[in-house]
Structure formats: C-alpha cells, structure tokens
Simulated scan of single mutants.
Amino acid sequence: MSEEKNPQSRSERRKKEKRKGGRFQTILGVILIIIAAALLAIDPIKNQIIRQGSEQNQIGNLTREEVIANQDRDVEYDWQAITNINAAEVLANSINPNDLPTIGGIAIPEVSMNLPIYKGVTNEGMYLGAGTLYPDMEMGESNYSIASHHSINEDLLFAPLMRVEMGDIIYLTDLENIYVYQVDYIDQVEPTRVDLVQPTVEPIVTLITCDYSLNERVVVQGSLVETVAIENASQEMLNAFNLPQTIPG
C-alpha cells in the first residue's frame, strides 16, 4: 500500500507547491503594481519641487550684492558624491532653495532654459540648477564648466541640452555683465573625458549632463562672442533671464 500511495502523495505535493507559487506570483505582481503607482504619483511632485526651487533661485530674483556674498561661501567640489536624480531622494532631502549659493544664471532662449548657477558641486545644487565644477572660475574667462542632472521631463534642468543645436546662443550672467557664447561643439562622450572641462586659453563655456541612458555624458560648448555690461543689455538678453529693465544693485 505504501508504494501505491507514494506517487499520489508526490503529485499532491506538486499541486500544493504550484498553488503556493501562483499565490506568491500574484502577491508579488500586486506589490509591483503598487510600487509603480507610487512612483508615478511622486514623480510629478518631484518635478514640481525642482521647478519651484530653480525658479525661486533664478538670477532675476537676486541682487548683485547677494551674488557677491554667495561667491564667498564655502562649498564642496566632490564629483564622486553626485548620484543620479530620483524622486525619492529629492523628496527625502527636503532641499531648501534658500540654502543654495546662487552666483549666476544660464539661459538658452532657443530651448527655453533659464536656470540658476550655484557655486560648487553638490547633489542639492544639481537638483535645482547647475553647479560649477571648479573653484575660482570666472564667467567670460578660460573654460567656465557647469553641470546639472538630466531629467525625464524634457524641460527641467539640463534635459533641454538634448535640443540644443550648433549656432545657438548661450547667455551667462553674474548681474555685472551678460556673457554671450555661441554653440560650436556638441558631443556624447565617456565620463572619463575630463579634458573637456580643463582650463583653456580662449574663453568658452562647457555644459555637461548625462545622456538618456545615464551612462555617457552630453557635452555642449560655446565660444565667447561678446561681453555686455548689465546696464547695456538688450531687451532680448534681459528677457532670457526674466530680468527687470533696471537691475537692482
């Protein structure tokens, strides 16, 4: 009798194991759906935090005195500490835009970009604008290198760089001058291409972000074509930064 029952017992055990496996897969599937729904829910919140923070710190909301004070702030330049942007981290960090040292602004009218430039390399700065890669850089001199995150939202942070074309105009300002650059180099490179951010003889600007895969870097460079005192700026230049006609001192 025991030999006849064994095959049936094994069959019943297999059926029970299949039922358990099916229930586990169902539960796992439900959990994944819940997680996906949660991520979809918090992503718009993350985008709104980024948008509000970067708009709050736009250069048009600062005075020249505030920019000068921020230039003297002690900051970090730790490239290794930068991580890919994600909704959970942005929400968890509760970034206060007032804590970030805005020292300028970057605008590219052709792609509707107008972002604050922060002194230093920090996750917080690159969540809400662009950060300077080296200390003691000066707009309009050598290689002014700044970086920011690539966002899934094509209008946030440095995601608009994907739409920049050769010949487009890049404006930088520190509220003393507006520095006009023209794009003459666009490439997708390995992260090891640090030569692209090294000092140069001719004044250029270098903008860096991740590509769509987050594995390589998109680099946009422009050569300086003009430096205009802020009081002599054209209406087009002022509009690019949402600057008033008269700049407060």
Rank of each mutant, 00 (worst) to 15 (best):
A37R: 10
Q25L: 14
P191F: 02
E138F: 12
I230P: 07
E165C: 00
A107E: 10
K119G: 06
H149F: 03
N57T: 07
V205F: 05
V183W: 04
I103F: 05
E17Y: 11
P191G: 00
N239Y: 01
I68E: 14
Y134K: 15
N242D: 14
Y179D: 07
I45Q: 05
T246E: 15
Q25S: 11
G129K: 06
I85N: 03
V225Q: 15
N96A: 09
D74G: 01
V218L: 14
G249L: 12
L157K: 13
V30F: 12
L196I: 03
N177G: 00
S11C: 12
V164R: 10
K46L: 00
Q58M: 10
E17N: 13
M137F: 00
N6D: 14
I35G: 05
G167M: 09
Y185Q: 11
F158R: 01
D72N: 13
V228S: 05
T227G: 03
L32A: 14
H149M: 09
Q235A: 15
S148L: 01
P191Y: 06
I108G: 03
P101W: 04
Q182E: 14
S234H: 12
T227C: 05
V218G: 06
N93Q: 15
I85P: 07
M166T: 12
L100C: 01
N177P: 04
I152K: 09
Y144R: 06
L214C: 07
A36E: 04
S142I: 03
I103M: 06
T192L: 12
V121D: 12
V180I: 08
T209M: 11
A38I: 09
Y185M: 06
N232H: 11
R193L: 05
F24P: 01
Q8E: 14
A147G: 15
G53L: 01
S9F: 12
I68C: 02
I34A: 04
G129N: 06
N84T: 11
H149K: 06
H150L: 09
E4A: 15
E55T: 02
M166Y: 14
V219M: 07
N70L: 05
K5Y: 13
H149W: 06
Q58I: 04
N242I: 03
V189T: 08
G53F: 03
K18Y: 06
T26E: 13
Y185S: 08
Q235R: 15
Y179C: 07
